[in-house]
Amino acid sequence: MEISTQEFKHCDLLKVTGRVDSATAPEFSKTLEDINNNGRFKIAIDMSELEYMSSAGFRALLATQRNCKRYNRGELVLAAVPERIREALELAGFTELFRTFENPLEAVGSF
């Protein structure tokens, strides 16, 4: 797993590539927490090159969405979600908790 972050005026764009599982989720989770700890709560995640995500990654998404939406201060949105990962998110009942966009540009533009 590799993560890169880009700070825009209205939001942060985080690109996660490779595989997020129980081994790598803590780092994924920490990156999201760090963004929140910097007082930034509008986050878009670019998943275009994400190969795999287990429930360990889903938990990080859920915890971050909770933190972002508290006091209406922001939101976590997803972009370019690969089909397999979207199917797993759907199975977990997660799709209704996150707005999703075709590409990162649209996701960033939504804020």
Partner: peptide, 13 residues
């Protein structure tokens, strides 16, 4: 969102 459980998801999947 606020009432969603974080545990048990792996087994459910």
């Amino acid at each position: 969102l606020s009432n969603r459980q974080i545990g048990g998801l792996g087994i459910y999947l």
